[in-house]
Design a protein around this nucleic acid. Structure first.
Lengths: 225, 225, 225, 225
DNA sequence: AATGAATGAGAATTCATTCAT
DNA sequence: GATGAATGAATTCTCATTCAT
């Protein structure tokens, strides 16, 4: 599971609107980039089509040549972001040779992505209130890869076979998300600047927790409930 | 730490609001109740003062006698909700005598509350985009109690002393939140009805994970990073 | 049928929006008057809520306190106009004592009303494309009175009993409408000014036509088809 | 007057339109046909150039090679429709040998055309609000033929010489129009289907009215006004 | 000739908030 | 204390028309 390939291009939602010429392609990209910036900075409700097209340096009406509504471009953005985080994580995990290292690398990849695009991550979370199915998809896609990794590691004896891979995957993703939020997104130094990266101690602390949680058990007696 | 007391009434934010007569008190309460229902059902942006006052059976202008803005009443609601979840959790944990049981009881309390007020919990999460500090406060307050509990359990030898209590508390809260979202809020039976409670297997799976993670270590070799 | 009473207040469509205070009543009236002027001058599609509220000297948003949409206020206007033409006709016919005189008086009343409110009449006709049922209602209401008058005149021997009262009523209304359009609404003097009234010769010409058409027949042989 | 010839092709308005090659001619016709269908179905304001060109299977920009504006193509259509109704009426009247028969045949022709193209006739009526002069022209052209017919019939003693041919022509046209509207366009059977033709009784009723109105008078005393 | 991407003025509509009663 | 009429900035979206290709 530590490969990049599994996260490749999904065209499912990046479908596209009508104009298909090279010129149209450029405009469409400009709009998506502008939307990314505006949604990230202002949030969904404060953002507006005017702000997006202004930022894109494009006429207001042109927007509707490519997208049906604010919600539609937002959803396309969430899908895109999802692809990018997953790619970042997969890339980070590539080359590791055991589950714990993969785990750490994956989270490091995730935190690095979040640190680099802090506001973007806000877009994904806001999807819960704008387009719930989109958020569902986002988490589900991440979990799927995660779960597969855990199963493989259980098979190879790296991970406690008593763990439910699905529940565990959701638990780990949740843990990573709140830790990222607390120690990366909320953190500010004395000048009010956000950190460039999550502190190593935090990752260490988190890894101790994860290593404990996943470690293959030899002792019995874990199943008493 | 398994006491109810520590979660008692915080008037910090519920203060304010001009009219203080018995009549005023009633009106204020009516508004808050209406707001709770409306925000829960419609979300922050779809909700409107008119809808709230109509639901409260109160004149539109009256709203501004008690609250300064839509945002303000929303924040007051978040604080209230925070108090109520924490109370639910504390009540559930009361009477347990070891960390693992407390842990399970706490999560059960949390899931029970979420199952009973699914829409209300959405309000809390939406605070991230309406009033970020409010969400910060919400999580922080929960984590504080959690962290205290972990420290105590480390002291009494119940929990791995190698764990960072703060990081661990955030990790556990994140795990619980996503699991609740996935297996409670998103779940639907064949008729599309939401579950009454989170399935026991999920809790069991989660507890195996938590027990692993927290278990006191005797072996060395865990501290190599 | 030559009475004014039968055309009295119909509240069917003049129903009303929410505000009911004296102040609200005034505002509502101001809006209706402004709408009348704007629709008459500009037509339905060129008219806009902004233009109406500006003309009324009232805030844009206020419009929506009283009407749901441009179409709704338009319909209310058509109903009102219908009431007024019918009233004008009935008043003109009052006091006549035979069908032919009533006929002439009725048309004179209609032409007088049209001359006084030329643009308003355009509103009614435009209803065909904005709110067809409203136009249907307009014509139907007029025809109903007309038909009753014809039947009575047939009974009293004033009018050819071989005529179908309904078909005849529609025919006469159509005749009056196009004559009004041609010789009143379209007519311009050398300076391009519209006439103050329809020329007497036209009415005379029309009455010759109508008298012929309605005259009680003694001869047989009319029914050969 | 009962000839087809007088209603022949008028190129007066159908001129214009730049491209003149065979290809251009085809494109132009395609646009006109599409416009006819779209205006008839949607009305002037709901129709749009995009819809017309799409329906024509032609590029949007191409439209402006042949027409200056939406209004222009609409006007051209009205002129065309006018030519067609008049043709239908003239054809129906051809071969009749007295005014009353011609009258009936003419109206039957008109009603048949209206029944066959109900929506098209709506286009003509809508012209009143889109291009008033066009409607004027439409009615005037019809009336001219009508009036000529009446004069001839007066000369040959078929029609009351006391009638004003112009006023009478407008009256008859108005009568026909409203009767067509009421008994053809508005009528629906139990399944909501429009009638295939106007009922014979209606035509009979109308003809009784017209015959009365036009019948040559021998008696004096009609001219007392 | 034909095309279709781009444009922006303008339309309808919403809603938090104010304030006179 | 309570009320609700009034407000207008702001938003989304449409469409006739232009113009570079």
């Amino acid at each position: 599971m530590s490969t990049v390939e599994q996260f490749e291009p999904e065209t499912a939602f990046s479908a596209a609107g009508k104009p298909l010429t090279k010129r149209g392609e450029t405009t469409r990209r400009k709009l998506l980039e502008a939307a990314e910036e505006v949604f990230a900075r202002l949030g969904y409700h404060e953002a507006s089509i005017v702000k997006i097209t202004e930022r894109a340096g494009i006429g207001l009406g042109t927007f509707y040549l490519y997208f049906d509504s604010k919600q539609q471009i937002f959803e396309e953005l969430v899908v895109d972001l999802n692809r990018r985080v997953r790619h970042a994580m997969a890339e980070a995990m590539a080359g590791t040779d055991n589950r714990i290292d993969a785990e750490r690398a994956g989270f490091e990849g995730f935190f690095r992505f979040t640190a680099a695009h802090p506001a973007l991550y806000r877009v994904v979370r806001e999807a819960e209130f704008v387009s719930p199915e989109m958020l569902r998809l986002h988490y589900t896609r991440i979990v799927e890869g995660y779960e597969a990794g855990l199963r493989a590691a259980q098979a190879s004896g790296d991970v406690d076979t008593g763990l439910d891979p699905e529940v565990t995957a959701w638990a780990l993703m949740g843990a990573g998300e709140l830790i990222g939020m607390r120690f990366l997104l909320w953190e500010r130094d004395d000048e009010g600047r956000p950190p460039v990266a999550i502190p190593d101690e935090v990752i260490d602390g988190m890894m101790r927790f994860i290593r404990n949680a996943l470690a293959a058990r030899t002792e019995k007696g874990q199943d008493h409930e």
